[in-house]
Simulated assay, not measured.
Amino acid sequence: MGIEQVAQPRQRAQHLGPERRRPQVLDTALAIAVEHGIAAVTIAAVAERMQVTRPVVYACFADRVELIQELIRREEDHLISGLLEATPQRTVDAGETVFVEGFQALLEIAAARPDAWRLLYGNPDPAVADSFGRGRALAVERCTTLLRPTLRAWGTDDADRKLPALVELWVSAGEGAVRTLLADNGAWDPRSLGAFVGSAVYRALREA
């Protein structure tokens, strides 16, 4: 007669107050969203992955809607702060180094928190598309403010007419650089890719 197997009781989760557990819940929700999409983020799914009961998650967020809203807000804040941090601060007669350093900073930020960018960056889910749209609009506004006096200092012909197209080139290059880095094929790191793209964008803008 075989040895009767006794089911082991589920281990109790480490006791943490809601405020200390909230970041863990959001990190778990982010992982689920990146792997399976926003629709897969539920209280039950988060609790199961954390190996806690649903009341533990409900103690942090009233319902699924509040959880998703807070997740998107947190990741949007990371994205926007990253865009602002990576935007060059010098505007007059900006040299190649300014652009290289800006792209390197952007890619370092993306590499440090890739799931935040994967959630918001070009995600077709309407729940997050608006968040990336706001971040992109802010990037366009900041780059326009910086580039206008730079083009004039360079003596760019017909600078005001060319400005919107050149800003779009600059911002789109940043988007493409992030996508390339996050493709995870190991061909680039933030420093080398930032140097390559930053130099290319500088030359394109300078020669426009």
Score class of each variant (00 low, 15 high):
residue 119 L to S: 05
residue 73 R to T: 12
residue 122 G to T: 07
residue 95 G to V: 11
residue 95 G to A: 15
residue 87 T to F: 05
residue 80 I to C: 06
residue 110 A to F: 09
residue 56 V to C: 03
residue 103 F to M: 09
residue 63 D to N: 15
residue 115 D to G: 01
residue 110 A to T: 07
residue 110 A to K: 10
residue 56 V to L: 08
residue 75 E to M: 09
residue 100 V to K: 10
residue 96 E to I: 11
residue 52 V to P: 01
residue 124 P to F: 11
residue 52 V to H: 01
residue 65 V to C: 02
residue 105 A to C: 10
residue 99 F to C: 03
residue 119 L to C: 10
residue 101 E to P: 00
residue 89 Q to F: 00
residue 104 Q to R: 14
residue 102 G to T: 09
residue 100 V to E: 06
residue 93 D to N: 13
residue 103 F to C: 00
residue 85 E to D: 13
residue 74 R to G: 04
residue 115 D to A: 11
residue 70 E to M: 04
residue 69 Q to C: 11
residue 77 D to L: 12
residue 108 E to H: 15
residue 103 F to K: 00
residue 96 E to Q: 11
residue 65 V to T: 12
residue 53 T to Q: 12
residue 59 A to M: 05
residue 63 D to T: 02
residue 106 L to S: 07
residue 68 I to N: 05
residue 70 E to T: 15
residue 102 G to F: 07
residue 100 V to I: 15
residue 88 P to D: 02
residue 124 P to Q: 11
residue 108 E to V: 15
residue 85 E to Q: 12
residue 111 A to N: 14
residue 53 T to L: 08
residue 121 Y to S: 07
residue 60 C to M: 09
residue 85 E to K: 09
residue 55 P to S: 02
residue 124 P to V: 11
residue 58 Y to N: 09
residue 91 T to W: 11
residue 123 N to G: 08
residue 59 A to N: 12
residue 90 R to Q: 13
residue 54 R to G: 09
residue 95 G to F: 06
residue 78 H to D: 14
residue 62 A to Y: 01
residue 121 Y to G: 15
residue 104 Q to T: 12
residue 70 E to Q: 14
residue 86 A to E: 02
residue 92 V to H: 14
residue 56 V to E: 06
residue 76 E to H: 14
residue 87 T to E: 13
residue 97 T to V: 12
residue 59 A to Q: 09
residue 54 R to E: 15
residue 118 R to H: 07
residue 87 T to D: 10
residue 54 R to S: 13
residue 101 E to K: 01
residue 120 L to D: 02
residue 111 A to R: 13
residue 89 Q to R: 13
residue 59 A to E: 10
